[in-house]
Nucleic acid binder design. Structure first.
Lengths: 197, 197
DNA sequence: CCTACCGATCGGTAGG
DNA sequence: CCTACCGATCGGTAGG
């Protein structure tokens, strides 16, 4: 009971921060703007998160937690992992704010001294490893087209997701996020991604 | 003769701005930092470019001019256009600063009110149209694999280039920019990209 | 949690 | 081109 209100307040702040980061990036966001959206002063916000960076860390932490939860990504390497990524894209299309946040931060964090730089290094490595493993399994069962290198396939698959998101945000009407992903997988696999109806 | 020095000075400022934008993005850059790198005061810089936005416009203008020059991209739709893109990637690998600039600005400019937003809208549309046309030609000559949709192929090709660049900047050792592009084209085409030796 | 404040930095202007 | 300045905004702290 006792810390309940504080915990809710913290969650509200994290949510507001995620939205503002998506709109303006991390460096482009101010504690005052985030605080205003949850109805407090920026000094009040600093009572919950001692620094600007601490708030960013909390946002990234919650994103990871949400991802793990949705994925149950324990999914064994193979088609299931790829289906999970497509499902993630479907989820993202319905929640553009997540795409905003992710794309803005990823691009900003290219700078080695950005506080989210290590987070994204880790993120890319993990994503690639997971996808490489899946393509390797598919190769061994003949579900990957002849001559397709699992490592290139994985690297380009991840890059494609990221590039599509930026392009989708810039010219939304011109980009079919999920369709493009399926198209690409179709060009690599010898079997349909989804079980036939 | 007369305006020679001023023109050179302007070029110096634009070059410095491009570097700083690549490091810190547009919003993250200050006129004072750019001015310092060319050895003048920020007020002096504003003598050459009346506002921060005017300097950004000049940077983008010069980029376009350089692109057109290198491309002679009048290259007729078809394999030549795709080869040009691969050549661009080869050029970029040797000039990471260009990739920094482009990736940072593109991501920032996702925001509709960003001063470079329209520039990137135009940029994406043009790139897509050029590549779509080329894939259509290749389809008509049987050089595109059966069942590959030219529009999806073009959209994903552009997205892949952008996504690869961000990932390359974040984890340079793990990403083969040019190889990934060739891999991708290889999975779409029925003919080699380059004429056999 | 708030008010009030700090030092730093920003883009831009005045006036030469 | 420079010095000097302006108003605005920033993250963070003091003190309650």
């Amino acid at each position: 009971m006792t810390y309940q209100k504080g915990r809710i307040r913290r969650e509200d702040i994290i949510s507001a921060a995620a939205v503002v980061y998506g709109e303006a990036g991390y460096h482009g966001s101010s504690l005052r703007e985030i605080a205003k959206r949850v109805g407090m002063s920026h000094a009040g916000l600093l009572y919950y998160f001692p620094t600007k960076e601490a708030l960013l860390a909390a946002v990234l932490e919650r994103r990871d937690a949400e991802d793990s939860e949705r994925e149950q990504l324990a999914a064994a390497p193979g088609l299931g992992v790829l289906r999970n990524f497509v499902a993630l894209a479907e989820h993202n299309v319905r929640h553009p704010g997540i795409v905003d946040l992710y794309s803005r931060l990823a691009a900003e964090a290219v700078a080695p001294d950005h506080p989210a730089h290590e987070y994204f290094e880790r993120h890319y490595r993990q994503a690639r490893e997971s996808v490489i493993g899946s393509f390797r399994v598919l190769a061994s069962t003949g579900e990957l087209r002849e001559g397709v290198d699992p490592e290139f396939a994985a690297l380009t698959f991840i890059a494609l997701m990221d590039g599509l998101q930026v392009q989708w945000l810039t010219t939304p009407g011109d980009v079919d996020l999920v369709g493009s992903l399926r198209f690409y997988l179709g060009s690599l696999l010898t079997v349909p991604l989804d079980p036939e109806a």
